[in-house]
Simulated scan of single mutants.
Amino acid sequence: MKFYDVLASLIHDMKNSLSMVIHTLDEITADPLSGYDQPARITALQNEAKRLNNNLIELLTLYNIENERISPAIEDVDVANFLAEVMAENRSSAETNHINLTVECDPDLFGYFDENLIRNVLNNLVGNGIRYTRDRLLVTAAQEEGYLVFRVEDNGSGYPERMLTAHSPEGGYGDLAEGRTKLGLYFATMIAEMHRNGEQRGFIRLENGHGLSGGCFSIWLP
């Protein structure tokens, strides 16, 4: 996947979000009280605004990666505090969508990674999880097999089989018309692979029914 492919697909996705925002704002402007009578409209606007912001962050990050203008700033990170900050950023959106967002992490867990890059990945995963889960999202972090593993799990319908077998640049991303989900996989893969320790490098993994009944997206950092 080349950067111009990513750009074209992200522009398409952002255009759809903007169209939805403009249409909803036009309706609220025509009847200002409708925004108060139907809070779901305001929630939808907030969700689309966050999606647009995440799209732009992804776009800029992928551009910098493509042009070798970015390298990970690996630091010693208090993982529990880091996840608490990520949860705080997403708590309001989860609550307005009636999603139970929880986190599990050993308070003494530390890791070595780029906070900003991994934060962007997790924010995207939680944002997508809010859209596709039924009513629960679980974010966890733990040491496993010599890696620091972040997981975002939901109790939705899970990932389709084709995504479980094609979730890396080497595995292919299929038709870009399928949209943002595959671009999110590409973005997460690029960020994971930028984290290296000797011969080890980061990777992502998709599965269904890990802890909750739906999809589980994990990012493994050496």
Rank of each mutant, 00 (worst) to 15 (best):
S34D: 06
S34G: 03
G35E: 07
Y36W: 14
P39Q: 09
A40I: 13
R41S: 10
R41P: 00
I42P: 01
T43N: 09
T43S: 11
T43D: 13
L45A: 07
Q46T: 13
E48W: 04
E48F: 05
R51W: 12
R51P: 00
N53L: 12
N53W: 11
N54C: 02
N54D: 09
L56F: 12
I57P: 02
I57R: 09
L59S: 08
L59Q: 12
L60P: 00
T61Y: 02
T61K: 07
T61H: 06
Y63S: 14
E66V: 04
N67R: 15
E68S: 13
R69M: 15
R69I: 12
S71K: 15
S71V: 08
S71C: 04
S71P: 08
P72H: 04
I74F: 06
E75L: 10
D76C: 05
V77W: 07
V77H: 10
V77I: 14
D78H: 14
V79R: 03
V79I: 06
A80H: 14
A80Q: 12
N81M: 09
N81D: 13
F82L: 03
F82S: 02
L83C: 05
L83E: 04
V86E: 03
M87D: 11
A88K: 10
N90K: 12
N90V: 02
R91Y: 08
S92H: 12
S92K: 07
E95G: 00
T96D: 03
N97S: 09
N97I: 01
H98F: 09
H98G: 00
I99H: 02
N100F: 11
L101W: 02
L101D: 01
T102Q: 11
T102C: 03
T102E: 13
V103S: 10
V103A: 05
D106W: 04
D106Q: 06
P107R: 09
D108E: 08
F110C: 04
F110L: 05
F110Y: 13
F110I: 10
G111W: 00
Y112F: 11
Y112S: 08
F113Q: 02
E115K: 12
N116M: 07
N116A: 14
N116R: 12
